[in-house]
């Protein structure tokens, strides 16, 4: 009885979580330019339009480039910081850890306005590369958390053994620590990449009038009415996120990454 109730509850949550995505996916297959569900006719034309229409394709490529660049920069900031905090005992340096976490916890509109004020004052308002830096700072929390977790899982007796045998810091990092931490580094990159791809408010405030990312393009297009193309783009977003997180789960330990201690329970 209780087991049945449990299953029912989980199934209901799954249904509500899936409902909007299923409907949007259905709408994207409409043969006509209408948003009806269940779809009338079947067509993949709207998916094609994402790649053939210059506007959508441009937005897609811009988003991918910004996500790839900002995730790389976020990892480049997070890795040395996490390594330093693990390698040395320096309590005051935790301040930078807090700084790296703050933008993500605060409402994003605050960080967005901060960047707008900064880039406008510095005279670079509207330049595409400012979005890359802004996203990197906003999302640095994710690689910082995953890489810190990666370091904490490294057995210190390994590095001690390497040091005893004459390896200097750099060699220990490269030959012992880095291979152990790499899965966490890749996960951090993946998290930052997906969130940058979906980020709207910072990109919009920093360079909304000159740079059109996919979320900005969708929001602008919404004002002129809903089209099946948007539904197709939405399916793309969901699929991209699910694919990337599945890869993270395949090559890393997702429950552990998200805070469960044990990793060997069946």
């Amino acid at each position: 009885m209780s087991r049945l109730f449990t299953r029912l509850f989980m199934a209901l949550v799954a249904l509500v979580l899936a409902a909007p995505i299923v409907v949007v996916a259905g709408v994207s297959f409409n043969a006509q330019r209408t948003l009806t569900f269940p779809p009338v006719g079947f067509s993949l034309a709207w998916f094609g339009e994402v790649f053939t229409d210059a506007g959508w394709r441009g937005a897609l490529l811009t988003s991918l480039a910004i996500a790839a660049g900002s995730a790389a920069l976020a990892v480049a900031i997070a890795f040395p910081l996490a390594w330093f905090l693990w390698r040395w005992h320096a309590p005051w340096a935790r301040l930078f850890q807090a700084l790296g976490t703050a933008p993500f916890i605060l409402p994003p509109v605050i960080t967005a306005l901060g960047f707008l004020s900064f880039w406008a004052t510095a005279g670079f308002y509207g330049a595409p590369w400012t979005v890359v830096i802004s996203h990197a700072i906003f999302l640095v929390t994710l690689p910082l958390v995953t890489i810190t977790l990666g370091f904490s899982s490294v057995d210190r007796s390994l590095t001690e053994a390497a040091a005893t045998m004459g390896a200097d810091d750099r060699t220990v990092l490269r030959t012992v620590v880095l291979p152990l931490v790499t899965p966490y580094l890749v996960s951090g990159y993946a998290f930052a990449f997906v969130l940058s791809l979906n980020e709207y408010i910072i990109a919009y405030m920093v360079a909304g009038f000159t740079v059109e990312t996919l979320p900005i393009k969708i929001f602008n297009a919404l004002r002129y009415g809903y089209t099946p193309t948007m539904a197709a783009v939405t399916v793309f977003f969901v699929a991209a996120a699910a694919l990337i997180f599945s890869f993270v789960a395949r090559f890393g330990d997702l429950p552990r990454l998200l805070g469960a201690w044990s990793s060997n329970e069946s």
């Binding site: 409902a19 909007p20 995505i21 409907v23 949007v24 709408v27 948003l35 569900f37 998290f191 997906v194 969130l195 979906n198 980020e199 709207y200 979320p215 969708i218 929001f219 919404l222 809903y226 948007m230 539904a231 939405t234 977003f237 969901v238 996120a241």
Partner: peptide
């Protein structure tokens, strides 16, 4: 959770 608010808003207004 990583979906943009634009996407969530569009999906629900369709629903």
């Amino acid at each position: 959770v990583s979906l943009s608010e634009v996407i969530v808003g569009f999906a629900w207004s369709t629903l």
